[in-house]
């Protein structure tokens, strides 16, 4: 990507979970790190998220899920992205994601899992270093 363009990130809250503290803190941190950040707000269905990705064309999508619904929601989001031939967007997930769930999510193309206690700069670095375009 050209050097002038800012990294564009979509921060999303899929599902019914309303715990948006982490998503908001992350959104602000990425913005302060010089990225262009769009926060979807809460209660996003997989379809809502994919539609926003199509409209906004972000470089990275950061999902935040604390309700335990990640195994059900993440694969659906990834499948829908594939249906629209979107394969150059980095998709990471934060929240309460047990280690044993990670292989399944990785199989669906997610990369980057961030739980409680993660330092924000770790996530900023991760986004900078793992973009697919």
């Amino acid at each position: 990507m050209s050097k002038e363009r800012k990294i564009k990130v979509l921060v999303c809250k899929p599902g019914l979970d309303g715990h948006d503290r982490g998503a908001k803190v992350l959104a602000r941190t990425l913005r302060d790190a010089g990225m262009e950040v769009i926060y979807t707000g809460i209660h996003q269905t997989p379809e809502d998220i994919v539609n926003t990705v199509i409209q906004e064309d972000p470089d990275a999508v950061m999902l935040s899920i604390l309700s335990g619904s990640h195994n059900a929601l993440c694969p659906v989001i990834m499948d829908k992205l594939k249906e629209h031939n979107i394969d150059d967007v980095l998709v990471a997930v934060g929240g309460i994601i047990p280690d044993e769930d990670k292989p399944l999510l990785e199989k669906h193309g997610l990369k980057g899992f961030y739980g409680p206690g993660t330092e924000l700069k770790t996530i900023v670095e991760f986004v900078k270093n793992n973009l697919k375009r």
Partner: peptide, 17 residues
Amino acid sequence: LHTIYGIEADNERALGE
């Protein structure tokens, strides 16, 4: 969560919850 939002268990928005 689906009870909290008044959504029936078989609603697609309740997926995984």
